[in-house]
Nucleic acid binder design. Structure first.
Length: 511
RNA sequence: GGCCGAUUCGUCUAACGGUUAGGACAUCAGAUUCUCAAUCUGGCAAUAAGAGUUCGAUUCUCUUAUCGGCUACCA
C-alpha cells in the first residue's frame, strides 16, 4: 500500500495538555531519527482539539524541549511550512467538510443523543452486568440519522440540537493490519464501536478524524506513535479506506512504564520518583513545578542517548551514540515490543560518560553560574584547567564545582575522620620537614615533584600513606580527592605552603 | 468484563531452531593509587509455567499465568 517512492515524512503530534514527558520525547526522537536517516522531513503538529484539557504554555514547552534535545523540526507551528497551519485549532474549517463527506458516502452518520442520555444507557447496561457500546446493535434504535428521516435530521440540525458525527463501523469484518514493529494484526469490527469523529461540545474533530485528515493532507508516510494507539488502528485503517486515501505505514512503540509500581508513565508522575520525568522544568499553571533533566544537570546528548536505548538497540554492543550515530544506526525493526522501565542509575552513568567526553571549556561555561553563585570568581580558562583535573569523577556539572572548589578557596574546615586518622604528632613533625622540602622545590611539573617527594619519603623511611595524607589534610582538608601534586601545582607553591601553615595553626601538633 | 499487545539476569537488552544463553547498569570481591573516585580483573544473577512440532527449542504452535494498553463528544 505505501508507496516507497514518496519522500519520507513523519510527524510528532503532541497534545498541549501539559509538559512533555520522556515517553513523548522518545517518540519524537524516534520519528526524528527515522526522518533524518531517510532524508525525510520531521514535522511538529500540535493536536489541540480538546479545548477542555488545553494548557497554556504547554506548546511552548514542547518546542523548547525539542530544541534542548537537539531534535530539529523541518515544518511546524514555529517555522510554518507548505502545509500550514500546523495547529489543529487553526484548521477547524477543514475537518467538518471531511466529516460530512463520510456521512454522504455512507461511512458515518449524525447522532443526536445528549451526554445525559448516553450516561443513562451506560448505567443501565452496567446494572445488567454489560458494557454499553455505541455500535451496530444500537445505532438504528437511537437518535441517529440512520433511524430518523432526512427531514427530521435537517430540522434538528436547523433548530440547533446538539449533534455529533459517528463513524459507521462495519458489522463483521476482519481488518487486516500491518505494523512495522508488531507484524500482522487482525481485529474483527464486531468488537469495535462507532467512534465519534466530530464533537458538538467544542465544534472540533476528535483525534481520530483530525489525525487521519492531517496526516493525509500533510503527506505523512510513516506514523510512529505510542502503543496506546494500537486499539484504534483498525478505525484508522477503515477511515483511510472510507476516504479512498493511501494510508501511511504504522509503527507502534512500546510504552515507558512507571519506574516503580504499575502502569504507563504519565505526566502526573512529575518528579515524585526522585528523578525527573520531564526534559525541562515544568511550571504548571496551577503553581506546581516539576524538575527537568536539564535542571538536574543532564547533558542533552546523554539524555538523548539514554532515551534512544530505552526500547531500541543497535544489535551491537555499542552504547554511546552521538545523534549522528543514532541517525545512522536507528532502525524500527530493532525496536523492542515490550514496555520499558527505565533505570535512573544507568541514566547517571550515561551523563558521567558524556561529562568525561565533553570539552573542558564547554563544561567551564556551563558551570560558571554555579561558581558565581558560591561567590567564587574564576575565569573560564582557569575553571577549564581545574575541571580537566577531576572531570572523570563527576556525574553532574555541580560535581565539577564541588570537586574543584578548594582549588580556588582554602578549605573552610578539616574532615574530622581524616584528621583523627592522620593528624598525629609524628606525622605533623614530618610534615614540617616536608614543608621545607617543598619550599625548596620549584613544583612546576607535578609528576617530577611527586617523584622527588616520594624518593625523599623513602630515604627517610617514613610511611608514604601516613605522611601524604597528612599533607593532603593540610592542603585539601580531607583525605580524598585528586592527586595532591596536581593540586599543589594548580594552586601554586606559595598558596600550598600557606595552607600548610594555616592547618598547623588551627589543628595543632596532633595527638 | 471484552478486545488487543507483551513476557530472557534486580533493570535495559543480545542471541531471527544448534551458544558454556552474550553485553551494559546496579551489586559483591580483588588489583592499582598519596587518598577518594575513575580504571582494570573476576564473581553473583535470567529464558513465566505446562503441553506440543522437531534429531534439537529462548526462538514455531496451543493453553494457563502475569504485566501492559484500549474500552470518553481525551489525546
Amino acid at each position: 500500500m505505501a508507496d516507497n517512492n514518496r519522500k519520507v515524512r513523519v510527524r510528532f503530534a503532541p497534545s498541549p495538555t501539559g509538559a512533555l514527558h520522556i515517553g513523548g520525547v522518545r517518540t519524537a526522537l524516534y520519528n526524528y531519527l527515522f526522518a533524518r536517516q531517510h532524508g525525510g522531513d520531521f514535522i511538529l503538529r500540535i493536536e489541540d482539539t480538546d479545548s477542555q484539557r488545553f494548557v497554556p504554555g504547554a506548546e511552548n514547552y514542547i518546542i523548547e524541549s525539542l530544541k534542548w534535545c537537539g531534535i530539529h523540526t523541518d515544518e511546524g507551528v514555529e517555522q510554518g511550512g507548505p502545509h500550514a497551519p500546523y495547529r489543529q485549532s487553526e484548521r477547524k474549517e477543514i475537518y467538518l467538510q471531511y466529516a460530512k463527506q463520510l456521512v454522504q458516502s455512507g461511512n458515518a452518520y449524525y447522532a443526536f443523543d445528549t451526554a445525559e442520555q448516553l450516561d443513562a444507557l451506560r448505567k443501565q447496561a452496567e446494572a445488567e452486568g454489560k458494557t454499553f457500546a455505541y455500535d451496530h446493535t444500537v445505532r438504528r434504535q437511537l437518535q441517529t440519522s440512520l433511524a430518523l428521516t432526512q427531514q427530521e435530521v435537517d430540522e434538528r440540525i436547523a433548530r440547533g440540537d446538539n449533534w455529533v458525527i459517528r463513524f459507521m463501523m462495519p458489522e463483521d469484518e476482519d481488518v487486516q493490519m500491518d505494523d512495522i514493529i508488531r507484524g500482522h494484526i487482525v481485529i474483527n469490527t464486531k468488537t469495535l464501536d462507532d467512534k465519534v469523529l466530530y464533537k458538538s461540545a467544542d465544534q472540533l474533530p476528535t483525534y481520530h478524524l483530525a489525525n487521519i485528515v492531517d496526516d493525509h493532507l500533510m503527506e505523512i508516510t510513516h506514523v510512529i506513535r505510542g502503543e496506546e494507539w494500537l486499539p484504534s488502528l483498525p478505525l484508522h485503517y477503515l477511515l483511510y479506506r472510507a476516504f479512498g486515501w493511501q494510508r501511511p505505514e504504522f509503527a507502534h512503540l512500546p510504552l515507558l512504564l512507571k519506574p516503580q509500581g504499575q502502569g504507563k508513565l504519565s505526566k502526573r508522575d512529575g518528579d515524585k520518583f526522585g528523578f525527573p520525568v520531564f526534559p525541562l522544568q515544568w511550571d504548571a499553571p496551577d503553581g506546581s513545578s516539576a524538575m527537568g533533566y536539564r535542571e538536574s544537570g543532564y547533558l542533552p546528548e546523554a539524555f538523548i542517548n539514554m532515551l534512544a536505548l530505552l526500547g531500541w538497540n543497535p544489535g551491537t554492543e555499542q552504547e554511546i551514540f552521538s545523534m549522528d550515530e543514532l541517525i545512522n544506526a536507528f532502525s524500527l525493526d530493532k525496536v523492542s515490543k515490550s514496555g520499558a522501565r527505565f533505570n535512573p542509575d544507568k541514566a547517571k552513568w550515561f551523563n558521567a560518560q558524556y561529562i568525561r567526553m565533553a570539552d573542558d571549556q564547554r563544561l567551564a561555561q556551563l558551570v560558571q553560574p554555579i561558581y558565581a553563585q558560591r561567590g567564587i570568581s574564576v575565569t573560564i580558562d582557569r575553571a577549564a584547567q581545574a575541571i580537566a583535573l577531576i572531570k572523570e569523577r563527576a556525574t553532574f556539572p555541580v560535581d565539577l564545582v564541588d570537586l574543584t572548589q578548594k582549588l580556588f578557596v582554602r578549605p573552610a574546615d578539616y574532615d574530622e575522620k581524616s584528621v583523627a586518622k592522620f593528624w598525629k604528632a609524628d606525622n605533623v613533625a614530618r610534615l614540617a620537614e616536608l614543608r621545607q622540602l617543598l619550599e625548596a622545590d620549584s613544583i612546576t611539573d607535578p609528576a617530577a615533584a611527586e617523584a622527588r617527594v616520594h624518593e625523599w619519603i623513602k630515604s627517610k623511611d617514613y610511611s608514604m600513606g601516613q605522611l601524604m595524607n597528612t599533607l593532603r589534610i593540610a592542603i585539601w582538608g580531607v583525605s580524598q580527592g585528586p592527586s595532591i601534586f596536581h593540586i599543589i601545582s594548580f594552586i601554586g607553591k606559595e598558596e600550598a605552603l600557606a595552607r600548610i601553615d594555616v592547618a598547623a595553626a588551627s589543628l595543632g601538633q596532633g595527638a
